[in-house]
Amino acid sequence: MKKTVFLGALTVAGMAAGASAAATLDDVKARGKLNCGVTTGLVGFAAPDANGKWEGFDVDFCRAVAAAVLGDANAVEFVPTTGKTRFTALASGEVDMLARNTTWTLSRDVDLKFDFVGVNYYDGQGFLVSKEMGVSSAKDLDGATVCIQTGTTTELNLADFFRANNISYEPVPIETNAEGQQQYLAGACDTYTTDASGLAATRATFENPQDHVVLPEIISKEPLGPLVRHGDNEWADIVRWTLNALISAEELGITSTNIGELSAAPGDNPEINRLLGTEGNLGEMLGLDADWAKRAIMAGGNYGEVFAKNIGESTPIALARGLNAQWKDGGLIYSPPFR
């Protein structure tokens, strides 16, 4: 008994010590696996398929980081987290990074001590209602019962939106997307609110998606991005530049089909050469080898390919690129130069 208590205390201490250790890169390499925090299941972003293999927009980003760091896109342990547990999981060192529809806000960045490495999806909060209710605007929702995931920024936006418009509502707090879907479909709430992308993904799994509609109002800015613990800048750099590599690859026209050819020998475009490691020593600067970006891009394709495969217009989720188009195409997706 005494021994168990002592070992338990040691474990707690070990976990606490792990949290403060700075060298996440070394930990990941020693473990041979990347622990990546994802949602408990949001089709298109992160959800296990019929065979239990995780797939989705955020999952592909985890795989890209694992490919860049470990050379194996499958060396990822996916840790499902809820809106409530995600930050504790990251802060305690249970996961090395979060790729989980998490909104970049000042307090999360500064007060919760995390580093957002960039934005991989520009989103906004919307409302899903059933068509038969005949609601055309979120301002018509006076007195409605609203299902809302707790521990999210959307919860605070919702309170602000209804207060600013001086209308009332009844919040029904729920823990996971699946629970929200169940309550919404059973009519326990009139509307379900979360990021518009999440609503589209949820709607796509309904039996009759055409009976439901996402209201036109987007009531907030929700820049979603991957994040890591504050204080380990080397690791943050690796995750940040992996994201930038995927974005730059789309901009430069590097796809999973032509990457073999482009990386075989230095070509005419020096930026492609630097990115793919055929020229310069960018990989070395990051503490990785020269092929890191090549492997990251080969894991799931460039940003555009990952988008199209998981949530693009040809999928049931059918999200348009919109704000998430490359800057050259009028969107906000923009990577600093590889130089």
């Binding site: 809106g83 409530k84 930050f87 504790t88 802060a91 307090s107 999360r108 007060d111 919760l112 001590k113 707790t150 521990g151 919860e155 605070l156 029904v172 707090p173 729920i174 823990e175």
Partner: peptide
């Protein structure tokens, strides 16, 4: 589990999450 806002849901749930003061 059923979204009843007791003290675990408010102080130990939303407040903890929004402030990060575990």
């Amino acid at each position: 589990a059923v979204g009843y806002m007791d003290i675990t849901g408010t102080l130990g749930g939303i407040t903890m999450n929004q402030t990060g003061r575990e």
